[in-house]
Structures are given as structure tokens and as C-alpha cells.
């Protein structure tokens, strides 16, 4: 029971790291980034490449892989999303085009990774991070990578939440989400803020990707899609663009899925997320934690 709870919290932490970036991109820039899962796996792949010959230690690997993931997402922003936002003033057309671009990018990234890994699951060597297990009495225990994941998720979640609420950059992001034209009139370099936001979103996916590759001992291209779908459920339950909503619902869904696997019909685990999406969209499409919404005239 306690062990299940620990597992759920660790899983929820990975989901938090993963879905915060997705929520940020959708909430501020109308990008439903279906390449987010591929970027996440890409970071795991970079980890594998950097550590397979035991040349790089953990912390530099973590940093390089996260930055690489951020850079890939930034490249998408600069090559495609920025241009689409400028040239397709109709919001619906822009959203569709950005969605399509992200599908294309997911294909490209996934294809590159699966080629380099011969379409098999890839595992960073054990030497990349030496895992210790601390016993908490009986058969219950927690490993150092699990602790690291939870701590990283808490730090990132608090920093992002406070950053968005209280800093100058955070205000610019929220203003941009509501009205980019006016925000730029006020002296905000909207293009730079958007680029920084996408970079951050990608780097967060990367961070989650590296940690998960070490924690699970391996990843494959399909891993990204599984996480993407769970993250959809998190966004919908938490409310798109709501940082706190995403954090709370990440842990809720992790608990629900862990419970289904441990005590229920475990093969229906994937069904939990989809069912939640459908139910939430029907009952409360603005999400559990959405605040007052202002519609722009």
C-alpha cells in the first residue's frame, strides 16, 4: 500500500514535469504540441548517447539533454510556429497549422531516434547513475532516483508557479496569452517571450525524459505517445494553462492509474486517462481548477 503510494507520487512527479511544458505552450501560445512526447523521448535518447560509453556523468548529461530538448522545441517555434502566428491571422487556421506542424515534428524526431536505436528500446547503462535503494521497513523502499524525481518536480512546479505569478516575465506570458498585439504595444518583445516559453516547455519535457530513462532503465519512441495522452488528460482535468491545476491533476491521475494497475483490471490502465478526458470535457470543459475567464472582444 505504502509502496503503491510512493510509486504513484514518483509517477505523478514525472507527469508534472512532462505536462507543465505542454500546458504552458497551449495556454500561452495556442500550440497543442503533439511533438512534446517525441521531444521527451529525444532527451532520453541523448542521455543514452552521452552515457553509453560512460563518458559523461549524470549532472552534465541531465543539463545537456534538457537543453537539447529545449533547443529542438525552440527550433520548431522559430521555423514554423512564429511564422504561422504572423501569417495566419485567423486563430482557427493558425491552431490547425501549428497542430499539423507538431504532428510532423513528432514523426521526424521519432523517426530519427528509432533509426539511431534500430527501432528498439534503448537503455542508458547502469553506470550512468548508480541507483541506491533505501528501505523504509519491510518490503517498502525508495530509491535515490525516485527521490530526485520528486524533488525536481517540486522545485520546478513551485518555481514555475511563482515565476508566472510574480515575475515580470510571468506577467508578460499571461498578457501574451490574452492579447499578443496589445502586449507588444506595451514594449514586450512578444517574439522573444514566445521563444523563451517554447524553449522552457521543451526543456521541461527533456528533464522528465532524462529522469524517466534512468528511472525505468529504458525508453522507446512509443513511450512519448503514452505520456502525451496521459498529459492530455492532465491538462483537461486541471484546466488548460493553469499551472496549479496541472500539478494537482498530474498527481491525481498518477494515483488513479497506479490504483487501477495495483488493484483493478490493470490492462484498463490506459483507459483511465481517456475516460477522464471524455468525462471532463462533457461535464466541466474548463477544468476543475479554472478561474474566471475573460473573453476578448
Amino acid at each position: 500500500m505504502l509502496q503503491q503510494l510512493i510509486n504513484a507520487i514518483v509517477f505523478g512527479s514525472v507527469l508534472t514535469l512532462f505536462s507543465l511544458g505542454l500546458s504552458l505552450a497551449w495556454g500561452t501560445l495556442d500550440v497543442l504540441n503533439l511533438a512534446h512526447g517525441a521531444v521527451f523521448v529525444f532527451a532520453g535518447f541523448i542521455t543514452y548517447e552521452l552515457t553509453k560509453d560512460s563518458t559523461m556523468s549524470f549532472v552534465p548529461t541531465l543539463i545537456v539533454a534538457s537543453l537539447a530538448a529545449g533547443a529542438v522545441t525552440l527550433a520548431l517555434e522559430l521555423v514554423a510556429f512564429r511564422r504561422i502566428r504572423l501569417h495566419f491571422p485567423a486563430r482557427r487556421q493558425a491552431e490547425l497549422s501549428m497542430l499539423v506542424v507538431s504532428v510532423g515534428a513528432a514523426t521526424v524526431i521519432g523517426e530519427v531516434v528509432s533509426h539511431q536505436t534500430s527501432e528498439a528500446a534503448f537503455s542508458p547503462p547502469a553506470s550512468a547513475f548508480s541507483i541506491h535503494r533505501y528501505s523504509l521497513g519491510g518490503s517498502v523502499g525508495i530509491t535515490n532516483i525516485q527521490i530526485l524525481i520528486v524533488v525536481a518536480a517540486i522545485i520546478v512546479a513551485v518555481a514555475l508557479d511563482q515565476g508566472i505569478r510574480r515575475t515580470r516575465y510571468g506577467r508578460a506570458i499571461r498578457a501574451l496569452a490574452y492579447d499578443p498585439t496589445t502586449t507588444q504595444l506595451l514594449g514586450v518583445n512578444v517574439g522573444a517571450v514566445a521563444a523563451a516559453t517554447m524553449f522552457l516547455a521543451g526543456a521541461l519535457a527533456g528533464l522528465a525524459g532524462v529522469m524517466l530513462a534512468i528511472y525505468l532503465g529504458g525508453e522507446e519512441v512509443a513511450t512519448g505517445q503514452d505520456y502525451l495522452l496521459t498529459a492530455f488528460a492532465i491538462l483537461i482535468v486541471g484546466g488548460v494553462g493553469s499551472i496549479r491545476g496541472a500539478i494537482v491533476s498530474a498527481y491525481l491521475i498518477a494515483l488513479a492509474e497506479t490504483a487501477v494497475v495495483a488493484y483493478g483490471p490493470s490492462q484498463w490502465r490506459d483507459g483511465v486517462a481517456f475516460l477522464l478526458i471524455l468525462v471532463m470535457l462533457l461535464v466541466r470543459p474548463q477544468g476543475l481548477f479554472a478561474r474566471r475567464r475573460f473573453q476578448r472582444a
Binding site: 514554423a80 499539423v100 506542424v101 504532428v103 510532423g104 523517426e111 530519427v112 533509426h115
Partner: peptide
């Protein structure tokens, strides 16, 4: 061969951005 998906993906990015 198997690089074909890469071509599709790239094509989708290019078309959605420049030629909707």
C-alpha cells in the same frame, strides 16, 4: 525505405507553415 516517414513529417511541417 524507412526514412520515408521522415520525409512525410518534414513535408507536413513545410506545408503547414508555408502552404496550408
Amino acid at each position: 525505405g524507412s526514412w520515408l516517414n521522415l520525409v512525410y513529417g518534414g513535408l507536413m511541417i513545410v506545408l503547414a507553415t508555408w502552404l496550408p
